[in-house]
Nucleic acid binder design. Sequence first.
DNA 1: GTTTAAAATGTTATCGGTAACTCTAACCTA
DNA 2: TAGGTTAGAGTTACCGATAACATTTTAAAC
Lengths: 341, 341
Amino acid sequence: MVTIYDIAERANVSAMTVSRVINNTGKISEKTRARVKRVMEEMNYVPNQNARSLVLQETRTLFLLITDITNPFYTTLARGAEDAAIHNGYRLLFGNSDESLDKESEYVQTILSTRVDGVLVAPAGDPSLPHLEKLRQHKVPFVLLDREVPGIECDLVLGDSKEGCRKLVEHLIERGHRKIAMINGSSSVSSARLRLQGFMEALKLNDMPFDLADIHEASFGPRSDLSGIEAWLDGMPELPSAIVAGNNVLALEVLSVLRKRGLAVPDQLSLVCFDDFGPYAEYDPFITVVAQQAYQFGYLGMQLLIERIRKREQAGPWKKIVLPAELVVRRSVADIRGTPT
Amino acid sequence: MVTIYDIAERANVSAMTVSRVINNTGKISEKTRARVKRVMEEMNYVPNQNARSLVLQETRTLFLLITDITNPFYTTLARGAEDAAIHNGYRLLFGNSDESLDKESEYVQTILSTRVDGVLVAPAGDPSLPHLEKLRQHKVPFVLLDREVPGIECDLVLGDSKEGCRKLVEHLIERGHRKIAMINGSSSVSSARLRLQGFMEALKLNDMPFDLADIHEASFGPRSDLSGIEAWLDGMPELPSAIVAGNNVLALEVLSVLRKRGLAVPDQLSLVCFDDFGPYAEYDPFITVVAQQAYQFGYLGMQLLIERIRKREQAGPWKKIVLPAELVVRRSVADIRGTPT
DNA sequence: GTTTAAAATGTTATCGGTAACTCTAACCTA
DNA sequence: TAGGTTAGAGTTACCGATAACATTTTAAAC
């Protein structure tokens, strides 16, 4: 590999002069600058980022850790984060934890040992706490996306899960639905808890009964095994008229099971969910959703992160951004007012 | 930051001894090993990967550069690559070039300057050549995924684009379609060229006429502006009975335009495409596709890459893996045999 | 109780950069 | 013209780790 010393030798200057040319620091005569630059091109010089990071104690690299690289919510979020990072002169690297604490832990190790300047994290859940504490301990600035973790104070970009879910349920109630079930992510994930709360509050506000059997706790991450959903449906004394899915992945899984059973959406069962479907939103059955501003999650989160990095200790109190979730009515909900059950 | 020197001091040994404990090299008495380990835990030591990479001249980190992080083909591929990397004790970092040569160039710069041990690249297209030459020049092992680039010899994992596309067209012909149009990615992308070839060959083999106006060259990457597709459809003297889309993104874009025009699939127009839709495959209109083994692209590509890295110079001739593409018949194609046009 | 080999640990140089300081002319200035 | 600036370099030390070699300690052998 070509180093600044090789360049220095060929250009008849010291290594320091080469370094100055690269970084545009100090005073260099135009003549030597041109000569050094020419030699660098000739020799195809590429600076060694590791050496540089070592002495500078900064990498100009940020990290985005998401939990499901196949979910359009996160990939859109990633695009937002990427744009904001590049815009501010940072490199961005991605990692995918797959909703697994072990993988998350591995990535945290990578993050610490490569000394990136900051991290955007969508945590796997509440048990991510030790991972975040590790980041904090090592003074790596981080911003949490989409999910809060009790026990850690930090900058946050969240969606309005409770309110969003309430909107979904109220939309269903308005259309005459009285038996509504919910399938949700793990209760160790803050957004899942809030969505459940929104669900319950909406029922209570409308004096509707609530049966524990109507709630099914699954996982926000994709699973090949749908038998849990099957068992849940089988276990209910009577089928609900509508199902609320805690996120888009779950909605698809439910859809898949319903299809297998020959249950049409929305004719025989209505289905709504949290999160939109990216480019697939327009597909039949045109699922009615509460859409989040995925791109903004990434973009704003990145801005918070970069501000923290810039101001370091004097960055003031933690910020919390809550992005509204908007109901997008499509065609997955039947209007059953006046219809006998 | 805690360094091995801090550890060394507290444990009353030399830095070298600490290094030996970390790497399990050399001979260390059990007593000191235990003591050093305890101190490392106490002080929350994390090795500095930059320092290590600098002296070892290797990073144990690989890089995956894809062109569209929102496309299920690439995210599934990414999962495969990730699994294979972890399986072999490597870290994997991702980058997203967005089908842009500029971004790709940026990432190549990052790859070179961070001295990763190898790269898996889905190139933006033929003009990626200089980027790949740069990697070659700096002796960074790489494997190309999904797309070939004329002018560069290397390991490859490709899909059988020509044959796959021929299957699509023949499926249409079998069902009575005689006027078939195609929307494709940029002709500077090898897979797009092969898919077009497959399309044309199938027409020729079946003695079907071919009209240049039936072919529309767009982009494999997602676009918000669909006016090109609109103009294309408007420009045709008569609408085709079926459209072949060069990839899944294009199929969705066509679908969106058709929907806007009130044209139902498959009743008024049939639609098929290359690449499947991941979790969205089961959605209406159940698009008939030629599915690729996306996960295998990543997994096998990673294996090729790691083998190259292990054997370095003695790795033998370039390997080329061509993965078959399988026709998955769903419900986006009308059978119009015997129907007057 | 030496000698000697093996085991355990330490010293020094180095990876490729940059910060901080030093040096040397050329140029001002009174 | 002596003294002070300043532009344009160079020197040296260090970032945090490891390789290669050097040294000390331990234990076995005679």
